[in-house]
Design a protein around this nucleic acid. Structure first.
Lengths: 210, 210
DNA sequence: CACTACCTAACATTATTATGCGATAGGCTA
DNA sequence: TAGCCTATCGCATAATAATGTTAGGTAGTG
């Protein structure tokens, strides 16, 4: 028997969800609340298996509720419910340990499947949400800032600077004179609009040039 | 009519998938291949809507195939098929622009739904895969390296170094003598096991101390 | 061909860093 | 209370880095 708590401010939806779930074999709604103001106490008292959490609620919203719950319980499965596949909320929900994220318009039968999946360790997501997640993921790795038009040689020098090499070491590593290293670095500083090694290194990291 | 290409080395599964999909209204398998050796030409020739791509194939594997396709076509939907929800592959697939990732044991009916979802811009995922993705996501933001036992004051100094401040500037910013700055920095270098500003800055970035 | 960008190199000067040694003072704790 | 850590400051010196200027050779482009 899967035991649930529901947090949803809209009375119709709250009632509807409760009836749907209670009318299904193997599911039981322990209680349903219209806000998260006492979410910690409630979770502690009811010890649910799965929590359905609306994102958009007056007072303590769903993300806040999620955080509060995760402070006292890292095991209970939390399924976020939302009307929109809004980028910011998806990100916040995920980074705060939500187990799934589904749109409210999900058909009842599918919703029950999702609850089941969440309980057994899955991470059910409406596919439009999943798209958001994938986009965030790939953008995380591909966000390269400007590359400042560094020439090949300049990039090599910068890379060595980042690795902590001194001018002397760079010169010997690249088989060029130390004065040439100076020239390159001067050019790099101009292009990056900096005027010290550490600034250049910092900029290299921030813009993922390295 | 959704037009598909299939890449799958196992003949039984390849035939099975083809028959399943061709036997379903609205779907048509244009062709099925046992490896990705000529994937670019094939995709250009057939112009499919969706590609089913096995991960584990001899020769060019599914991830390589994915990359090759993405070089010539960023629109076609690519659904990765795999036996295991293996962390590394999931990550690679996602960062290279896969549109979905499903286990081979997915029931046929569900697989057809997934294909449909992928075609309409969704990102279908088996929920165990989604769990992987969420874990990766939250770990990305929480991975802090060692903090090297820097004192409060030392962290402040390091932060300013990262911001490109010179000793002089740090001194005036922190209202202390430049020689004190020197002392702090010497201590920081000892703790980080480095011996130059740029190395310290690099280490700060790498270990997310800043 | 003139122009531009890049890589190379040298010389000179000043500024900044790195390092060593020493010292005072406050706070914590065994 | 003695011992330890942190934060503060000073002095001195050697090593590096930053900046300015100049310049030869190569390659590509309008």
């Amino acid at each position: 028997m899967t035991k649930l708590l529901i947090y949803e401010d809209n009375p119709q939806l709250r009632e509807g969800l409760t009836m749907l779930i209670n009318g299904s074999d193997g599911f039981e709604v322990l209680s349903a609340f219209k806000n998260c103001n006492n979410v910690e106490d409630e979770v502690r008292a009811f010890k649910p298996d799965v929590i359905l959490m609306d994102i958009d609620m007056p007072g303590t919203n769903g993300i806040e509720g999620l955080k509060k719950i995760r402070e006292i319980d890292t095991d209970v499965k939390i399924l976020m419910l939302t009307v929109f596949d809004d980028n910011k909320n998806v990100f916040d929900a995920i980074s705060n340990g939500a187990n799934g994220y589904v749109l409210k318009k999900t058909p009842p039968a599918r919703l029950l499947e999702y609850i089941q999946e969440a309980q057994t360790g899955g991470a059910p997501m409406t596919s439009s949400i999943a798209t958001q997640v994938l986009k965030m993921f790939s953008s995380l790795n591909n966000e390269k800032g400007e590359d400042y038009d560094l020439s090949e040689r300049e990039k090599q020098v910068l890379q060595l600077l980042v690795n902590g090499y001194s001018y002397k070491m760079i010169a010997s590593e690249m088989f060029i004179a130390i004065d040439t290293v100076r020239s390159h670095i001067k050019k790099i500083y101009e292009k990056l609009h900096v005027n010290s090694k550490s600034e250049a290194v910092a900029k290299a990291f921030r813009n993922k040039i390295v």
